[in-house]
């Protein structure tokens, strides 16, 4: 397992045996196929943060985050969503950086 990104609230890893991305964030512990990871990130990114901030209704204090294939169904607060976004964005950056290195240096160089 290779660590991809770490924040004070969670960590992500890449498993080269299963080709999956593992996520540890608060109570959430899940692993994703790479495609599902990007879909999950998109789901989290599309949450309307501004509405959660400015709408005073109790309904906007939390947001349900779901990823059925990874068994995630969690109610997150605004702060948790921002922290999760941070972790997922950092992970995406690491994945893409690795991809750029592979493309630039060739697969034989990267271990």
């Amino acid at each position: 397992m290779t660590e991809l990104y770490k924040t004070s609230k969670g960590t992500t890893f890449q498993c080269d045996v299963t080709d999956r991305i593992c996520l540890q964030f608060g109570d959430i512990s899940a692993s994703f196929k790479i495609k599902d990871f990007f879909i999950f990130r998109r789901t989290v990114k599309t949450i309307n943060i501004h509405e959660m901030i400015f709408n005073l209704s109790d309904d906007y204090d939390f947001e349900w985050i779901e990823s059925p294939k990874s068994g995630i169904a969690q109610k997150l607060t605004l702060c948790e969503i921002v922290q999760l976004r941070d972790l997922l964005d950092g992970t995406k950056f690491s994945l893409e950086l690795n991809s750029v290195l592979h493309e630039t240096l060739g697969t034989l160089v990267i271990r």
Partner: peptide, 14 residues
């Protein structure tokens, strides 16, 4: 470390 992004797709995000 495997390049999982490229293994998944040839399509860049943009």
């Amino acid at each position: 470390m495997k390049d999982l992004v490229r293994l998944r797709t040839s399509l860049k995000e943009e």
